[in-house]
């Protein structure tokens, strides 16, 4: 990898530049990951970790219906959140980029990221109060006579999804907005000159060109959502389990790190597969 100069000597300067990032990645990702992979092959016996070197913890995942169900729940919730967040974030980013005067755009962006300024846990608990039987939503619905009895919104998958979407819409808005403002205005003018209406311009020009922004935001949403423990734990009311909750269950009382490690690695495999699929799809789109 070393660059060879004319006299055949290796130039170590490129290594020196990448060394900090490389060391950081090795120390805080590669080594912990390797430790986790090793521990996933061990076993918890009583109060001790025994190096039994087997795939029993992985087999356990595929043998138990409720373990598989947790993965399925995680995927379902994450997909719904990602799709809903894109559908809500795109128009918001569009309005910010196209309809808001440039001098107001910054204020618009600050407003968009305001929810990030509050604690994630506090925000989740706030949603509990908003969605509770006697919360703001139910009081409003009952107040205008839309429902007689309060709707069961809190402590459910719906509540978890609402909490997630509230957070991730902002993230996606930023990535899509960044993409939209980079599009040259000439593209739209050229499309109009060639007789394309606004819908055709959006479908054939704007949308394909903003796909990278959508995909980057969607992938970030997917990764953060599928690995999140706080929101489903606070808002879901244990109406069902998702993978991070299942992992915490293994650690909470028995300190069963081997099973927890195996489950975490399986979750990472799913995230990696999604990343590969996204990258491949984007590559195909560009080709």
């Amino acid at each position: 990898m070393a660059i060879v100069d004319r006299r055949g000597r290796g130039d170590m300067r490129p290594w020196a530049f990448v060394a900090p990032a490389l060391l950081w990645t090795i120390a805080f990702f590669c080594v912990p990951f390797a430790v986790m992979a090793v521990v996933s092959l061990w076993e918890r016996v009583g109060t001790e970790l025994v190096a039994s070197w087997s795939f029993a913890n992985y087999a356990k995942f595929f043998a138990r219906g409720h373990f598989l169900q947790a993965m399925l729940n995680s995927l379902e919730v994450t997909l719904i959140v990602t799709v809903l967040s894109i559908l809500l974030a795109y128009p918001l980013a569009w309005i910010l980029a196209e309809k808001v005067p440039p001098r107001w755009q910054r204020i618009g962006l600050v407003c968009a990221i305001l929810p990030f300024w509050t604690s994630y846990v506090v925000r989740s608990y706030a949603w509990v109060l908003v969605l509770a039987n006697n919360g703001v939503v139910n009081q409003a619905l009952q107040g205008v006579g839309l429902v007689d009895e309060p709707l069961s919104l809190a402590n459910s998958r719906t509540a978890t999804i609402i909490g997630f979407v509230h957070f991730f819409v902002m993230l996606l808005t930023l990535t899509i907005y960044a993409n939209l403002v980079q599009l040259p205005k000439n593209y739209r003018r050229a499309a109009a000159d060639l007789g394309a209406g606004s819908v055709a311009t959006f479908v054939h020009i704007i949308l394909p060109l903003t796909l990278p922004g959508i995909m980057v935001g969607a992938f970030l949403t997917f990764v953060l959502c599928i690995g999140d423990y706080i929101t489903p734990q606070i808002l879901g009311g244990n109406s069902e389990l998702v993978m991070p909750q299942l992992i915490m269950l293994q650690i909470g009382r028995r300190a069963d790190f081997p099973t927890a490690s195996a489950l975490a690695i399986l979750l990472m495999v799913v995230v990696t597969l999604v990343y590969v699929a996204c990258a491949r799809w984007l590559k195909l789109e560009r080709a």
């Binding site: 509990v128 109060l129 509770a132 039987n133 006697n134 069961s152 809190a154 402590n155 606070i234 009311g237 244990n238 109406s239």
Partner: peptide, 18 residues
């Protein structure tokens, strides 16, 4: 059941009438 919660969540649910 409406929810299964740890100490704070279950106590809050009872205290708030949830």
């Amino acid at each position: 059941a409406a929810l299964v919660g740890e100490v704070v969540a279950s106590q809050t649910a009872l205290a708030t009438g949830e």
